[in-house]
């Protein structure tokens, strides 16, 4: 029996030579049912074409660095099984909505800047002295923000968001979900400090609730929910004068 193979069509872009990206096809052996797209790329890099560039690290959906467009869908390439696509060819492109640096590598400068802009750390009015022991939280208090703290910064949500695609100024799904993660942490007192960035025209109000961010999120963060709840809360802050303040 002939060996089973699968075709990978990957985006190639060399900033020093190419005017625009183009596709290159690789036919590689598909020997193991547990192979994922990232394994295929690694095979190409070691056996076929060492110049193919892409990011990866953990191979297990934890580090968030291997996000790509796989047949047009935002996916972690380490979690996309070849068996789900075979025998059709698989189209592997860099994440949508980001500038392409080389091949499948995108520029995440903007994303990093946005994450930082929402002050993703615990803000206290007065620091609790270290000597006073642990700062305890109940399970219910943790449940308040746990979902939003699962984010692995894979940027799949940004690549799926047409609003971000149309306007790069939009703060975007993961950053707003992260803001909510801190705003809802019982130890945090920084909601007001984050408000200007969140309740800005380029913050939650830019979102029109397409909801695709939550569909593609590999960690169930549901950033769309975080954004809509933030809209509701910011509105209520002003409609209900003394409710919902902190």
């Amino acid at each position: 029996m002939a060996e089973k193979t699968i075709t990978i069509q990957a985006t190639r872009f060399d900033p020093d030579k190419d005017a625009r990206p183009h596709l290159q096809s690789y036919e590689i052996p598909f020997i193991d049912e547990s192979m994922v797209v990232l394994d295929a790329l690694n095979y190409i890099k070691t056996h076929v074409d060492g110049s193919l560039s892409y990011r990866w690290s953990c191979r297990m959906g934890i580090c968030g660095s291997c996000g790509m467009m796989i047949n047009g869908q935002s996916k972690l390439s380490c979690s996309a099984f070849l068996r789900d696509y075979w025998p059709k060819p698989i189209l592997v492109e860099p994440l949508n909505n980001f500038p392409i640096i080389r091949d499948l590598v995108i520029d995440m400068e903007d994303f990093m800047h946005k994450l930082k802009s929402i002050k993703p750390w615990i803000i206290r009015k007065t620091e609790i002295p270290l000597g006073s022991g642990e700062h305890r939280q109940t399970n219910a208090q943790i449940d308040d923000f746990r979902q939003f703290s699962e984010c692995i910064n894979c940027m799949l949500c940004y690549s799926a968001c047409p609003v971000y695609g149309l306007n790069n100024e939009f703060r975007g799904p993961a950053a707003i979900a992260l803001a909510r993660r801190y705003n809802h942490d019982s130890r945090d007192e920084g909601t007001k400090e984050r408000l200007p960035v969140i309740a800005d025209a380029e913050g939650v109000w830019e979102c029109s609730f397409v909801g695709e961010c939550s569909v593609v999120c590999p960690k169930g963060v549901d950033p769309a929910k975080a954004i809509q709840q933030s809209k509701l809360d910011t509105s209520l802050r002003f409609v209900v004068p003394f409710g919902n303040r902190e």
Partner: peptide
């Protein structure tokens, strides 16, 4: 870097859109 622009027809790309 290479920057793709979103065509106005982006909403035909996916059923969800």
């Amino acid at each position: 870097v290479y920057r793709k622009t979103m065509p106005p027809s982006w909403w035909t790309r996916k059923a969800h859109y």
